[in-house]
Amino acid sequence: MRFKTATSPHILRETGVGQVMRRVLYAMAPGVAALAWFFGWGVLVNLAIATGVALAAETSMLAARGKPLAVHLGDFSAVVTAWLLAVALPSLAPWWLTVLGVSFAIVVAKHLYGGLGYNPFNPAMIGYVVLLISFPREMSAWPIPHGVGQAHALGLPETLEIVFGGAGRLVPDGLTGATPLDVLRTQLGLGLTVTEIRNSPVFGIVSGSGWEWAALGFLAGGLWLVQTRAADWRIPAGMLGGLATIATVFHLIDPQRYAPPWFHLWSGAAIFGAFFIATDPVTASTTPRGRLIYGAGIGVLVYVIRAFGGYPDGVAFAVLLMNIAAPTIDLYTQPRVFGARRG
């Protein structure tokens, strides 16, 4: 039984889960467009596969759990999960990688924990981490961005052939290359300095060429989300602030060993994660002060993983680690009730 709920009279528009989720999808458009321009059709192919699989998985899980289909499919939460994961996957990823990741996200990380609103961990990031630790080779097959010495851009038919090619078929070596964070990590390990590494063609004006434009697109969409209050400003502000602070400290200590803060802010999944992944209302902290702490924790962890950990980027791990901490943060940051005594 579902009762019709009305909003309070001073709130002018009716909002719901579906509307917020649709806004997230619109806000991803500029970043996705930039990714598709630099990394080819594969980005869009991934999105299409992920959306289809997510809807199928969501439908079958809802049916198995005896939940109404129309209400839950209509809130677009499965599509948002699918898009968040698909954008994080390499654009020439084989089809089964996307299918496996999205199914795991929806079936295990979302529905086995009780469905939308009950999942303690961000489903898209669970799906991503499962793929990352299980298939490290496939997960690093990012194509070289458009305009960085790639012979020719892949057309749609060639992309489909690579994505749906047999299990034994691998992406031709010349097409893929290390991501900027990967290059930084490997070459720092070889004893090169940050200045020397920055001369490599994979780096652009601020961070990786191509990547920086995608980050700009996600920043634009993210700011719109914050402006429409679909996302709270405190989480991205906390995360980017935390990342910038710790990156600045280490950069000042040894500028040749630790990349500058603007490079870290603009690389990998930092901007995308700050506005789109960390802000998931289900798994994030809910109190105002708690959200700042939660965001800052993610930012610091991202830096620690990038600089000292075993992976080039750490947004997914950082988000999941802070997801566990969110209930505790909420417990200790309850806002003072109006009129209650301080302390």
Partner: peptide, 16 residues
Amino acid sequence: DYRGFLLAILPPGAFI
């Protein structure tokens, strides 16, 4: 020609 699914061998696979 199975590629392997490392997650199942790792500790999370045991819990799941």
